[in-house]
Write a protein that binds this DNA or RNA. Sequence first.
DNA 1: AATATTAATCGTAATATTGCAATGAACAAA
DNA 2: TTTGTTCATTGCAATATTACGATTAATATT
Lengths: 110, 110
Amino acid sequence: MGLAKSEIFTDKQNKIALFAKVFGHPARVAILEHLFKINACICGDLVNEIGLAQPTISQHLKELKQLGLIKGTIDGTSVCYCINKENWIAMKNVMNTFLNQDITVKGDCC
Amino acid sequence: MGLAKSEIFTDKQNKIALFAKVFGHPARVAILEHLFKINACICGDLVNEIGLAQPTISQHLKELKQLGLIKGTIDGTSVCYCINKENWIAMKNVMNTFLNQDITVKGDCC
DNA sequence: AATATTAATCGTAATATTGCAATGAACAAA
DNA sequence: TTTGTTCATTGCAATATTACGATTAATATT
């Protein structure tokens, strides 16, 4: 199939999976890390920074933008990218409730 | 292509992407949440709990096991599953260094 | 031994993802 | 106006993922 049966899961489970999915490719991780490292808006030198072709980078940026994790503002012929701070924090809260589940197991059969 | 060019990224970037990828499907999120909720070892009633066929669940469990996030111990005819605590904590550390990057942007051009 | 139970594996169909060449759109510079 | 620059979009090939029926493997039960 290749199609996740998202209708049988909760909204929260689907949300976690959607966020995780976008982090599930090293190019998108690298793009986000670069945006954090620069710590300001960057006007598209990501193609040089990361070793992928321009259409490929553009596609990854589109996915990040669609999830709201980055912003892209048109600036002449170039486009200015930066982290969407509010949305990043909101995403972090969702992911942390998942990652920080209570891990103290009572039984110990394994 | 469909094949990520992992060789051009750092080990850490690839590691983050690998962990994120496994969380990138709601069924695996649901499986993990259930293992946390039960807060003990569970002997395979996951097929009833989640609405997917047995081979599908088995496949998702395999991926979680391969990444070391869960343990599966044979117990007669059934198999006992639980969270691998040490590995979960290690994964959490990796993910948190990524999620908790400093978000204080100096410039504000966007 | 014959049968039942549980879960892994195999095989396969449907769909998604990744990557890039080619092209297009928008603007800047000459 | 022509040329260059920058980035998005289109189209396509290669590969990956998801899901499940059928089967198999291993152990229990009768």
